[in-house]
């Protein structure tokens, strides 16, 4: 099967002075030799602690940010090599949904205008056709035509996320990159939006790259999951397999950290240490300072991302020996 999207050896380094008392410039490799593929119609989750490079990856794919090196193939075409004018029609097929729907909606525009904009850019329509399209869109996301004249601040967080989804759907995309789309929502509303995302995926045959830090949400909505650590994928595989038998100690640690809504469960091994910074990453396996299985080889040799079983890859020297089943 040819993938809809294929990312090859993607790299991005930022020059930054943040977090340093002396104001010195430092190189920060946010995305490090990242490769993965997205099959049409699937949902791939991207998880990991804050700062591990999830959002940067999404923005590099859409060229909201220019990569240092690497390739991004969409339907076989290298997005990083083509001209801006050739990119534009392809950008229509790839839309983004953000965590904070409020900050991504212009506060001075009515919802009707916000939703008309993508049509103006990509597909000019006669007024009556536009009206019909908007009505359909609102219905799909569970809003109504009365909402068209209102401003973003008049909506709740969940409704604003519905508007963000409607805006992304307006141009009939194939691929949606959703960056923490439900993280800011209350649980009851989060469940509504997750269901909506699943419904429209079926209806419009969408492919999702679903960026999130909530592992329970990711496992629910995703077919496959990629776990990132310090700009690299350390494990990728089918969602349920990853949960039942993680093949990387970092994945195991992440899963252990999730509080489970069942009282009286025994305590679990906690991951020690801080979320690491991509400035001065550790030698060898980047996870070794926090890894409870680390041996001396881990301090010196970088473990490659290797297939361990069909469709399940891990970058740990001991992936074959460790039994981390749950």
């Amino acid at each position: 099967m040819t993938p809809l999207l294929k990312v090859d050896n993607l790299n991005k380094t930022f020059i930054t002075t943040a977090g340093l008392a002396n104001g010195k410039k430092q190189r920060l490799q946010a995305v490090n030799n990242l490769s993965f593929a997205l099959i049409e119609g699937e949902t791939l989750g991207l998880v990991g602690e804050s700062g591990c490079g999830k959002s940067t990856t999404g923005r590099l794919i859409l060229r909201l940010l220019e990569a240092d090196s690497g390739e991004v193939f969409y339907k076989g075409e290298n997005l990083l090599k083509i001209s801006r004018s050739r990119l534009r029609p392809l950008r229509r097929e790839m839309q983004m949904i953000f965590q904070d729907p409020f900050s991504s909606l212009n506060p001075r525009m009515r919802i009707g205008d916000i939703l008309s904009e993508p049509f103006k850019i990509h597909k000019p329509l006669a007024a009556t056709d536009l009206k019909r399209e908007l009505k359909n869109l609102l219905e799909v996301v569970g809003l109504s035509v009365e909402h068209l004249d209102r401003y973003p601040h008049e909506f709740s967080g969940g409704q604003r996320q519905r508007i963000g989804i409607a805006r992304a759907l307006a141009v009939k995309p194939n691929l949606i990159i959703a960056d923490e789309p439900v993280s800011a929502l209350d649980v009851s509303i989060q469940a509504q939006i997750i269901n909506l995302l699943q419904d429209i995926q079926k209806e419009f045959k969408l492919t999702y790259l679903f960026i999130a830090h909530d592992l329970a949400v990711v496992q629910h909505i995703c077919d496959r999951v990629a776990v990132m650590y310090l700009g690299r994928i350390v494990e990728i595989g089918p969602a349920l397999n990853i949960y039942r038998r993680p093949l990387h100690p970092y994945t195991e640690a992440l899963l252990n950290a999730v509080p489970i809504p069942i009282p009286g469960r025994p305590g679990r091994a906690l991951l020690q240490g801080e979320v690491p910074s991509p400035i001065n990453p550790p030698s060898g396996c980047p996870f070794h300072p926090r890894c409870r299985y680390a041996k001396s080889i881990c301090e010196t040799d970088l473990p490659p991302l290797e297939q361990q079983s069909t469709g399940h890859e891990s970058a740990c020297h001991f992936a074959k020996e460790l039994d981390m089943s749950r």
């Binding site: 009851s188 469940a191 997750i194 999730v258 809504p261």
Partner: peptide, 24 residues
């Protein structure tokens, strides 16, 4: 009951979640 039902849970694969309808 609605809150508990709307939670996705690790290790359980369900087709759909059961949200609470309406808004806060």
């Amino acid at each position: 009951r609605g809150l508990l039902a709307s939670l996705p849970r690790l290790g359980e694969k369900r087709d759909r979640l059961s949200p609470i309808d309406g808004q806060v």
